[in-house]
Design a protein around this nucleic acid. Structure first.
Ligand code: SF4
Ligand code: SF4
Lengths: 135, 135
DNA sequence: CCATTTAAGACCGTTTTTGTCCTTTTTACT
DNA sequence: AGTAAAAAGGACAAAAACGGTCTTAAATGG
């Protein structure tokens, strides 16, 4: 239950690898893939979505590659996870458009809201800098 | 991300309905299904797995049905969720058989362990009695 | 025996996951 | 200008998970 997908796991491995590099250094996706044990084409897709959100910068052509879009200390684990997995939603009724008619009288709903808040808080409290240098 | 399946949601709705009944009263799965808006045959399956674990007792034949296997105060939300969704595993490396070779040196692993612990603690702290009478 | 109700398992369409492959675009270097 | 090196983008697809249904069997009370 509540399992991160491989995409999420790969995303973290990949961007943490970037965070470990010297700031400003451009890295090939092929290098990241090999170092982290992630299928290269899959990782490329993941990095593309990172790039759209500004989490990484990319350069095409010879000498191209990826690097972090901002300092590692300014990227949280939550941002990484939500970039590829979407918002943290332990149950359907926690989406922005309240989807369950029982929501008003439901006693379970607040429990899921707490779960959501706790997970978000933990993930918000961890940055790529923490992960890159071993907390 | 981290979304409860419909099976899990249905399971909670169903067993909370049982918890709201007078202790000892036997309820038909058809009644629970109608009251909670869950497909009956699907709910029947869910209740079967509850029965195997002792969360509910069942009686077959005329006058049969379901009731809680022990007092509502002795059944936690975690037990209900894990009965149908399996253990709370935010990431693969948190299964009993450590499946990731990086686990020893990984800085992300402890974060997921924290998440696991927090979710478990929240769900452990809520009983069917709480849910039945509105906390 | 018969109606009722759960138990158990086979089955099945849809969606999501987990990728691959191919073409295009951008860029640097010669 | 030509070419090689990357990432960008999109189509495709096998496998797994999800969300159920259906059928048959077993128990139970009348
Ligand atoms: S019944 Fe309660 S917990 Fe379930 S989806 Fe509706 S509001 Fe959420
Ligand atoms: S790399 Fe770390 S977080 Fe990812 S599966 Fe392995 S131990 Fe867990």
């Amino acid at each position: 239950m509540m399992e991160l997908t491989r995409k999420g796991e790969y995303a973290i491995r990949g961007i943490v690898y970037l965070a470990k590099q010297a700031p400003g250094k451009v890295i090939l996706v092929s290098e990241v893939a090999e170092a982290t044990g992630v299928p290269q084409t899959f990782l490329a897709k993941i990095f593309q979505s990172f790039a759209k959100l500004g989490l990484v910068n990319s350069f095409r052509g010879t000498g191209g590659g990826f690097l972090l879009g901002r300092p590692a200390a300014k990227i949280t684990l939550r941002q990484v996870v939500e970039a590829v997995e979407g918002p943290i939603i332990p149950n359907r009724c926690l989406t922005e458009d309240g989807s369950c008619i029982r929501e008003n009288i439901c006693t379970v709903h607040p429990v899921w809201r707490r779960v959501q808040g706790e997970i978000a808080a933990i993930l918000d409290g961890v940055t790529l800098e923490d992960l890159a240098r071993g907390e």
